[in-house]
């Protein structure tokens, strides 16, 4: 049984079916890459897992609990963290403050009124700031970071949350080769302690990190397996890899 089970998920807007009977099992401590052409429904799947959108039918189980239709913050508190496709950081706040907000050990506002220091934050900040290469930039306003740094800040924020399952929507988009290599190293490190679902178009990156590759097409599962199995699948070649430029 997987840590995350998606059962026969459907999402439609009026007559347009965006997700069509999609099912997926994610095993604990693996890294699953979700690939597929533009508009395949990858981001929508993440929206359905994290509660940003509610499915028309179907179920999402996390450690056997039905989390379908819960609010975003409840799902996040159960241990699912998410990085968005368009990097979403708190632009008016400094990098340090972004990390402080992401360090969400106490979420009750009435308790946080009396909180001026979070226990263990400094140690965690040091660890993640180093990992994300942002230790020099802690006092910079997040809106002034470069694109790569912003991606890293958001990845760092997700790690700050200390989730059990990490959903990464196109984490290396817009990064340089060197940055991508570094990200691959870190993801390979992370999957020893965390479970990850990574949406990515960069097949080179996918090859370096994926344990399992899931291919989506028009809202349903097209193929699943190791990277070589998927790459040799004729259907996948036809709808996806055939027109990818490498």
């Amino acid at each position: 049984m997987g840590m995350l089970e998606i059962r026969d998920l459907n999402k439609s807007y009026d007559a347009i079916h965006i997700i069509n009977g999609f099912s997926l099992d994610v095993t604990e401590l693996t890294l699953c890459c979700l690939v597929g052409p533009n508009g395949a429904g990858k981001t929508t799947t993440m929206d359905l897992i994290t509660g940003r959108q509610k499915p028309t039918s179907g179920q999402v189980l996390f450690y056997g609990d039905d989390i379908t239709g819960l609010d975003e913050h409840e799902i996040a508190r159960r241990g699912i963290g998410r990085k968005f496709q368009v990097p979403a950081v708190l632009k008016d706040l400094s990098v340090r403050e972004n990390f402080q907000v992401a360090y969400s050990r106490t979420t009750n506002p009435l308790r946080n009124i009396f909180k001026f220091h979070s226990k263990g934050f400094e140690r965690k900040l040091d660890e993640i700031g180093t990992l994300a290469g942002l230790n020099e930039r802690l006092d910079t306003q997040a809106g002034l970071l470069s694109h790569g740094e912003t991606q890293w800040l958001e990845i760092g924020m997700v790690l700050m949350q200390d989730p059990r399952l990490l959903l990464m929507d196109e984490p290396v988009a817009g990064m340089t080769e060197i940055e991508i290599e570094k990200t691959a190293r870190i993801f390979n490190q992370l999957k020893k302690t965390h479970t990850l679902i990574v949406v990515e178009h960069d097949m080179g990156f996918v090859r370096e990190i994926a344990d399992v590759v899931t291919v989506m097409h028009m809202g349903s599962l097209l193929a699943q397996g190791t990277i070589s199995q998927v790459e040799s699948n004729p259907r996948v070649k036809e709808v996806y890899l055939g027109n990818e430029v490498h």
Partner: peptide, 15 residues
């Protein structure tokens, strides 16, 4: 943080 981006803050676990 909510003033900057309420949506982002929800996904960090805050109501």
């Amino acid at each position: 943080a909510v003033r900057c981006d309420a949506e982002r803050v929800r996904f960090l676990g805050y109501n």
